[in-house]
C-alpha cells in the first residue's frame, strides 16, 4: 500500500519535454472548468436569451459604433505609423513625437461632444504640448529609447 501510494505520487520529468509538463496540466484543468461553466452558466444563459429575457453581450447591446470602432482604428493606425515614421529617423523618438501629436489631436476631436472654438483651441494646444513634453523629458532628458 505504502509503495503503491509513493509510486502513484512519483513523477519523472524529461528535461527535453519539460516545457510541456505544466501547460498540459493547465489544459486539463481549463477544459474541466470550461465544461462545468458551459453546463451551469452558458446553457441557462442561452436559454434565457432564447426566451427573450436577456440579450447577448456585445451584439445585443446598444453601442456608439462611431467612437468605438473609431478608437480601434485610431489606435491601430497610431501603433503602426509610429514604427514606420520612427524607422525613417532611427532612434530619435520622432516617430513617437509626430504620430502622437496627430493621434492625440484626432482622438480628442473624436471624443469631444460640443465643438466650441475654445474647446478646439485647448485640444490643439494639448495635442502639441503633451507629446512634445513627454518626448523632451523622456527621450532627451532621460535618454529613453522611443520609437
Amino acid at each position: 500500500m505504502e509503495s503503491g501510494l509513493s509510486s502513484l505520487l512519483s513523477v519523472s520529468i524529461d528535461f527535453e519535454t519539460s516545457h510541456l509538463f505544466f501547460p498540459t496540466i493547465i489544459h486539463w484543468i481549463m477544459a474541466g472548468l470550461f465544461v462545468l461553466i458551459l453546463v451551469t452558466k452558458v446553457v441557462p444563459f442561452l436559454a434565457e436569451v432564447k426566451r427573450g429575457e436577456r440579450t447577448l453581450p456585445i451584439v445585443g447591446e446598444p453601442m456608439d459604433a462611431f467612437r468605438f470602432f473609431g478608437t480601434l482604428v485610431l489606435i491601430v493606425a497610431y501603433f503602426y505609423l509610429m514604427a514606420v515614421v520612427g524607422n525613417l529617423f532611427p532612434y530619435t523618438g520622432y516617430g513617437f513625437l509626430f504620430v502622437s501629436m496627430a493621434f492625440v489631436l484626432l482622438m480628442s476631436l473624436m471624443y469631444m461632444h460640443e465643438w466650441t472654438k475654445k474647446a478646439v483651441t485647448i485640444v490643439v494646444i494639448n495635442a502639441v504640448v503633451a507629446p512634445g513634453l513627454a518626448w523632451f523629458i523622456l527621450a532627451k532628458l532621460f535618454n529613453i529609447t522611443l520609437p
Binding site: 489606435i75 501603433f79 493621434f103 482622438m107 461632444h113 485647448i122 513627454a134 529613453i144 522611443l146
Partner: peptide, 15 residues
Amino acid sequence: PKHILYPIIVMMCVV
C-alpha cells in the same frame, strides 16, 4: 475632461 485625458493615457501607456 475625458477627451483630453484619454488620448494622453493611451500615449503614456505606449511610452
